[in-house]
Design a protein around this nucleic acid. Structure first.
Lengths: 321, 321
DNA sequence: TAAAAATACTCCATAGGTATTTTAT
DNA sequence: ATAAAATACCTATGGAGTATTTTTA
C-alpha cells in the first residue's frame, strides 16, 4: 500500500464519483479505478460500493476513510516536525544520563534549557557509557555524559566538555577500623571485600576500573562483587560489608553512614572526569544549544568557586594582618 | 512522499547502514540512496548524516523516525480495522436520528445492539430527513429514520421498515378555548398562529407539511413561525401562543400543559410514518444487523400491544357477560 | 439514451539494477 | 587497501493515458 492509494481513496470518497475525483487529482478516470481496485485488494475488502449510477462507502470504507485522512494528515505533520527539529527550536533532545552522578550539575542546565527552548522535549536516558557512545553515534541520543579516566582520550569524532574532575576516594562505613584516618593506602585494604555498581546490561566499567587500579599497583584483591544499584552498594558499605572506590562529591549528602577517605597512592588512573559528549559539526543543533548552556553554567559556577576562594583568602589575610 | 520512502528510511535508520538496509529490503544500495535523498528533498531537511564510514540520525531524523514508525503502524491498523468493519463485528454504526421522535423506540434496540456487537461504536447524528438520504447514499451514515407521509413512496434504492404510524394531531395549550373538545376541525383554527420546528440547516419539512395540509383544504392560515427547537415549540404551545400539527405519541409524557386533539378532517396527508431506512444489498452489514434487531423489537412490542388489546376485549366481554 | 465506471491496450516515468567512482578509515 | 555511499547510466515494472465496452437510471 502507498500513500497514493490513500490520497486517491479519500478523493473518491469525498467526491463520491470517480470521474470528478479523477479531475481533481489530475489523472484519468481509468487510472483511478485501477488504483482503488488495487487498494481494495491490498486492504482485503471492498471500500466503495459502486455502479455506474452511484458511488458509496461500505462500512469498511467509512472506517478506512477516517483512518486514511488521519494518516495523510500525520504525514504532513511528520515532515513539519522534522523541519522544526532541524532548526533546533523544537523536537526532542535525549540526554544519556549517568544516574546519580549528574544530580549535582544537570538540573540547573536543564531548567535553563527548558526556558530557552520550551518546544524541545527533553528526555533523560540512563545507559552505560559504552552504550552511550553508539547511541550518540547513531543519533538516538544527542548528548551523553561519560565517566572516564582524566587523561583517557575520547573518540575523536566527538566533541567534549569536562564537567567534573575528581580523585577517586575510598568509601568506608563510619564504623570501619580505618574510618578515623584521613588518608588510607590501598595496600592496607587489600584483604577487604570491594563492591562495584553493575549495570543491568552486562557492562561494568566500574568493576574494571577498580580492578585495574589494584592490578596496576601489584595488589591482589578478592574478586569484586557486583551490586545491582548504587543505593544497594552504599547500603552495603554503610553496613561495613565491604568498601568501594568512588568519585566522592555527589554522595556526600545522600550517604550519611559513609565516609570518603583520600587514597595515599598517586597516579593518573585515580583521576576521573565526567565529560559531556556530543557530535561535532552539523550533527545536532539541539546538542550544540544544550552544551552552550552547560558551558555557560559551568563557567559561572567555576567563577563562583574562585570568588569564594579569593574571599576566603582575603579573610585569612585580614585575620593575619 | 510515499510509504515506500518511510519504509526505506526506517530500515536505514534501524540498520544505520545503507548496504545492510538494502539487503533487508531486497533492493540495490544505489536505489535506496536515491530514495532517501528523494525523501529528504521532499521533507525539506537532512534526516541522516552520512559518509562512507558512519550513518547517523540528525535531530530531524530522530523525530521523523518516530513519526514514520507510527504512520506505518497506523497503515496496518487501518487496513485491519477496515476488514473488521466489513465483517460487521466491529467498526462504526452511525444512525441518522430525528431528535425526540426516536426517544420511544430507539433506546431498547440500541442497548440490544450494544450488547450483541460490543465492538461496534454507535453514533447518533441529528440531521434532517433530506440530508439523511444523501448521507445514507454516500455511506456516511448506515441507518436513517425518516418521517414521511404514510403513502409517500421512499427512494427505491433503499430498504425501509415502518416503525411508527400515527395520525397528525392538533397540539393545544391546556387553557386553549378548544382544549376541552375531543375533535377539532382545521377550519376552526384558521385564525390561529401555527408553529413548526426548523432545523438549523435551513430545511424545514415540518413547516412545509403543515402548510400543505391547510392549502390542500383551501384554508388560509397566517405564515407559519419557525421555532428553533421542539422544546421551544412545546413551551410556546403550552403558553397558548399558538398551535402546531404534530405526531402525538412521543410527547405525551414530556409536555404536560399540552393536549393533542384529533383533527376532524380526513386525508392521507394526515397519516405520517416514521421509517427506518438503510441501503439494501451488501451495502452495510452493520445496518442489516441493526435493522434485524429493530424489527425483532418492533415485532415484540406489536405482539405485546395485540396481547393488551385482546386482554382488554376479553375483559369487556366478561363485563358484558 | 446518456452518463459513469470498468476493460483493454499502449506508453512512458521512474523505481530499481549494474558498473563505476569517491571518500574515509 | 578496503568498505561503504554516491554517481552515472541502463532496464523494466507498473502507473497513467486513450479508446472502447458495459451497465443502469
Amino acid at each position: 500500500m502507498e500513500l497514493r492509494h490513500l490520497r486517491y481513496f479519500v478523493s473518491v470518497a469525498e467526491a463520491l464519483s470517480f470521474r470528478r475525483a479523477a479531475e481533481q487529482l489530475r489523472v484519468a478516470q481509468p487510472a483511478l479505478s485501477k488504483q482503488i481496485k488495487d487498494l481494495e485488494s491490498r486492504v482485503g475488502t471492498t471500500l466503495l460500493d459502486r455502479d455506474t449510477a452511484h458511488v458509496s462507502l461500505t462500512d469498511a470504507g467509512a472506517v478506512f476513510l477516517d483512518e486514511a485522512r488521519t494518516i495523510l494528515d500525520r504525514v504532513e505533520t511528520a515532515a513539519a516536525a522534522a523541519r522544526e527539529a532541524a532548526s533546533g527550536l523544537a523536537g526532542r533532545l535525549t540526554i544519556g544520563n549517568v544516574g546519580a552522578l549528574s544530580a549535582s550539575f544537570l538540573p540547573p542546565t536543564l531548567s535553563a534549557f527548558r526556558s530557552k527552548y520550551p518546544n524541545v522535549e527533553v528526555t533523560l536516558q540512563d545507559v552505560t557509557t559504552s552504550e552511550q557512545i553508539s547511541a550518540l553515534r547513531a543519533g538516538k541520543i544527542q548528548v551523553a555524559f561519560s565517566l572516564h579516566e582524566t587523561n583517557e582520550k575520547l573518540p575523536r569524532d566527538f566533541r567534549s566538555l569536562p564537567v567534573l574532575e575528581r580523585r577517586v576516594a575510598l568509601a568506608l562505613g563510619v564504623d570501619h577500623r580505618l574510618a578515623k584516618r584521613s588518608v588510607v593506602s590501598l595496600a592496607e585494604v587489600a584483604d577487604e571485600q570491594f563492591f562495584s555498581v553493575a549495570h543491568a546490561n552486562g557492562y561494568d566499567q566500574h568493576r574494571q576500573r577498580t580492578e585495574r587500579i589494584f592490578a596496576a599497583r601489584g595488589i591482589a584483591v578478592r574478586p569484586i562483587k557486583r551490586v545491582g544499584s548504587l543505593e544497594s552498594l552504599l547500603a552495603l558499605v554503610a553496613g561495613d560489608h565491604g568498601l568501594a572506590l568512588l568519585m566522592p562529591t555527589h554522595f556526600r549528602r545522600s550517604a550519611k553512614d559513609i565516609v570518603f577517605r583520600r587514597i595515599k597512592e598517586d597516579g593518573s588512573d585515580l583521576l576521573v572526569t565526567l565529560s559531556a559528549l556530543w557530535r561535532g559539526g552539523a550533527g545536532s543543533q539541539l546538542a550544540a544549544n544544550f552544551v552552550a548552556l552547560l558551558r555557560k553554567q559551568h563557567r559561572t559556577t567555576a567563577q563562583q568557586a574562585r570568588g569564594k576562594k579569593s574571599r576566603a583568602a582575603e579573610a585569612r589575610a585580614r585575620s593575619r594582618g
